[in-house]
Design a protein around this nucleic acid. Structure first.
Lengths: 352, 352
DNA sequence: TAAAATTACGCAATCGGTTGCGTTGCAATA
DNA sequence: TATTGCAACGCAACCGATTGCGTAATTTTA
């Protein structure tokens, strides 16, 4: 007895079986107060009729959507794709859906997206902030209504949420120290916008490593950009054109590092003899470039899994769950772009 | 007068303003039958109270979710990420959400996912089939209920939906012919599973190109695998170890092509003089490898946009919309891995 | 000035499940 | 035999917004 062109509802099943919709609902959910025979016959008929529960209705009544919202700058980056993959992985194991939105690093889009996802009544939100974002009011609704909100990778202290991130300072420090161990004495840094924790941390680590090893800090060797391939090329052109060019480059991402290598090679520089280069993220391109790029591992997939788990835990245990900040480990993945001499250091060797 | 710990509803606004929830709802939606003053005061109070519409409730009543479901094998691939990016792009412009699920190429996961997305009452579904999938019953609910269903890239004739894809045969043909033009006479093919249209089409194009140019077909030169880096390496090892090894390789993806180059170089082969290699997809790694990889452009982003547009069109014009299959153009992107001689052919030159 | 039209709004049903509370029938217990 | 307990199910409210229809007040038209 289907209505117009709609799907089958529990009412249709109830009618045929001469029971109430309540019973059907309970039978489908294995409620204990329904007899085995009834449960069986309901399920059987449901299957036969091709019944598919309407989770919109269920969500409304239960005030729960089994959905995790995700806001990221741009999907189409190896690091972000891995992050999402991790989230989706964990979520789907617990029958959660994942809604994804991109901000394209625009504050305005981030605001609109946050509102939309709140309206969708997601059960939790995972955010990696847009580059532009400096205000955080658009997340207030989540905080006020105790909807778990987790910042990943790009985080902000102003936004009082649980965080999952890496220790960018330590990573930047290790990267720079690795170059120093490889014999570099004049190290440049390709950095990103300093109001985002990630790039700021990496640069600070770079500076502190220089200080620790009593190397002079030359501001001309620090170049900020969006770290695209194009900008990496331009920055490198500038650096190598200096009267006193660097003998090592620490780039805050792999794209810029790779284009640095490409440009330097084009101009006749030998990598790593004349110029050692270390990147960040361990993107696929890092192991394709020649020489293969030494870089910093970035546990994006794990980050996604942990963030999702944290939300699921909130769902399960309510607000008993303590606020929790996770800092993930990174490693220097040593490849040929920095191997200027045999090293006895204990740094993990990897040539994937 | 908020309930327990819930959010603000139109009832809360109605109460304060001494009007009916109906009026509030209409005011918020700029219904013509509500006076300007009332509309204004409603909106003002709504903003002040931090009201956020509950789209779950709205969705239920309107029987529309403004959501597009997406099923893909794996997010974490350049091609897929670009596809999703295109979908999300178009969707968000029309205030549609996107729910993404991965199948990991498993049939079982695809079935579960399709059911879940149907239960979520997505307004349309975009699917790129899992490698394993050979049955399509799990999509019946969509077809029966006239929910727009679009297959992209990996499509199947058994599944009667609109499609957005490339002409794999033509692309495979062009790729192979390019190698022939470059002087190759003994061309190998790294192919994928032949029950998926993409790989079958590419291989058929390869075979037909050989036929057209009266080159013998040697089955030993056709190697099937999942085209991972590892398998690409192994396949190449096998090919180069043949008594009569190939002088050109057409790989059905870039990963395998890149690892073929890497292995061949390692063994002292000169690319492209001894061995020309052409890939497929134009992944980022293809322009990083040395020599840069000639490949086939794959309009994944456009594919996503077109698929999403097709769904939006269905939403707008109902079922008047004609079924429509889109076949997108591909191009040979000529780079150094196949440039064995100066060519006067009209093939588009690109060295991004 | 009476009738018709328009403006501005409310009532109550509706979307499809879920759930607290109540009811019925029958077996177990006192 | 009267009471209690439990198994199995139904009633009706509910989640929050939307919408067809009705109505009162005001304005326009005849």
């Amino acid at each position: 007895m289907r209505k117009n062109n709609k799907g089958i509802t529990i009412y249709d099943i109830a009618e045929k079986l001469k029971v109430s919709p309540t019973t059907v609902s309970r039978a489908l959910n294995d409620h204990h107060s329904i007899s085995k025979e009834t449960t069986l016959s309901v399920k059987k008929l449901a299957k036969k009729m091709g019944y598919r529960p309407n989770s919109v209705a269920s969500n409304l009544r239960k005030n729960k959507t089994n959905t995790i919202g995700v806001i990221v700058p741009l999907i189409n980056r190896p690091f972000i794709a891995a992050l999402i993959s991790g989230i989706e992985d964990t979520a789907s194991q617990s029958d959660y859906n994942v809604i994804i939105s991109q901000t394209y690093d625009s504050y305005k889009k981030e605001v609109a997206t946050a509102h939309t996802l709140y309206s969708s009544r997601v059960d939790g939100l995972i955010v990696s902030l847009a580059m532009e974002t400096r205000q955080y009011d658009h997340f207030h609704a989540f905080l006020e209504n105790k909807i778990p909100l987790i910042s990943v990778d790009r985080i902000a202290p102003e936004l009082e949420t649980d965080c999952v991130a890496i220790d960018n300072h330590s990573a930047g420090f290790k990267a720079t120290e690795h170059l120093i161990e490889m014999g570099c004495r004049r190290i440049a840094h390709l950095g990103g916008a300093q109001h985002r924790n990630t790039y700021r941390g990496r640069q600070q680590g770079y500076l502190d490593a220089l200080k620790k090893h009593n190397l002079p800090i030359d501001e001309r060797l620090v170049v900020h950009s969006k770290l695209s391939m194009e900008e990496g090329r331009e920055s490198t052109k500038y650096l190598l054109g200096l009267p006193n060019p660097p003998d090592g480059i620490f780039s805050a991402n792999d794209s810029a590092a790779v284009s640095a290598i490409q440009y330097a090679k084009l101009k006749g520089w030998h990598i790593p003899q004349d110029l050692a280069v270390i990147g960040f993220n361990n993107d696929p391109i890092s192991s394709i470039i020649e020489p293969q790029l030494t870089t910093i591992s970035h546990p994006a997939h794990d980050m996604g899994k942990i963030a999702a788990q944290q939300i699921l835990r909130h769902q399960e245990y309510g607000h008993i769950v303590q606020s929790q900040n996770t800092v993930l480990k990174t490693e220097v993945i040593v490849r040929d772009s920095t191997q200027r001499k045999i090293t006895t250091s204990s740094i993990h060797r990897n040539s994937a």
